[in-house]
């Protein structure tokens, strides 16, 4: 595995020990997501998958195979039509909307292809945004956000608005934001889709760094070389898991 060199940075862990206990971070059992559009569309059709804590999983598959749908379920943005999704030990379907939002806010960090930063907030405020909804004080938020921006190499860009940043810088702000609440799982849906090769490499290095710090990473990608930095690749096809490809240097190689 090509990323083992960067994985071993001990300082990268946002809070060591929190997520290091063994077990599964995410567990899907026979999950089905059906959209009724005249004819029912099975975006996911009976998916069962366990994602171990602290693992690095890539999800690949052709367009329309259900990758984003799967991410939405794991990220507690959505609930399955059938089956169970367990995130951090909690059955997502059994939670109320508010509890699901709380779980999402504290245990899940999102990174999107289109960055999805708040256009009127500067880099620091964007990173601090998730903590705003957790009732954390303003000064604590700012300290934490500054610390994370420094870690992604943007300590000198805290006052910049998103449109004053390059694509790679924006994605790094989004990364910092995903990590600000110290989540158990980071979900990235085509995080490098809009980036050039060099910036993509920076972002993937950061992923590896966070993974090394104990965060469970799930990354959706169309690119083989992006997927290869993970420990295993889940191949989706038409809403079903086609196969799971274990890569050399699995979980034990990272510890």
């Amino acid at each position: 595995m090509s990323n083992t060199g960067t994985d071993s940075n001990p300082e990268a862990d946002p809070s060591p020990g929190t997520h290091s206990n063994a077990g599964t971070a995410v567990s899907l059992e026979n999950v089905r997501k059906t959209y009724q559009l005249g004819e029912p569309v099975h975006a996911l059709d009976g998916v069962s998958l366990d994602v171990p804590r602290g693992s690095y999983t890539a999800i690949m598959g052709p367009s329309g195979s259900g990758k984003s749908t799967l991410m939405n379920l794991v990220g507690c943005l959505d609930t399955p039509t059938e089956g169970t999704v367990v995130v951090d030990g909690q059955d997502v379907s059994a939670l109320s909307g508010r509890e699901r939002t709380s779980l999402r806010g504290t245990e899940v960090g999102f990174v999107f292809q289109t960055f999805n930063l708040m256009p009127r907030l500067n880099a620091l405020e964007n990173v601090a945004l998730p903590q705003l909804f957790q009732g954390i004080s303003r000064s604590d938020r700012r300290d934490r956000a500054r610390e994370l921006l420094e870690r992604v190499g943007l300590g000198d860009r805290t006052d910049h608005l998103p449109n004053e940043l390059s694509g790679g810088q924006r994605q790094r702000v989004a990364l910092a934001r995903a990590l600000v609440n110290d989540p158990a799982i980071v979900l990235a849906d085509e995080p490098s889709g809009n980036l050039d090769t060099e910036t993509e490499a920076q972002v993937l290095d950061l992923f590896a760094e966070f993974h090394g710090g104990g965060t469970t990473m799930i990354v959706v990608t169309h690119e083989r070389h992006v997927a290869e930095r993970a420990e295993r690749i889940v191949h989706l096809l038409d809403g079903e898991i086609e196969r799971i490809e274990e890569l050399e240097g699995g979980p034990e190689g990272d510890e």
């Binding site: 945004l129 998730p130 909804f133």
Partner: peptide, 10 residues
């Protein structure tokens, strides 16, 4: 959508 994705309650 962004705010809700990062944990904003209704």
């Amino acid at each position: 959508g962004i705010m809700k994705a990062v944990g904003a309650q209704n």
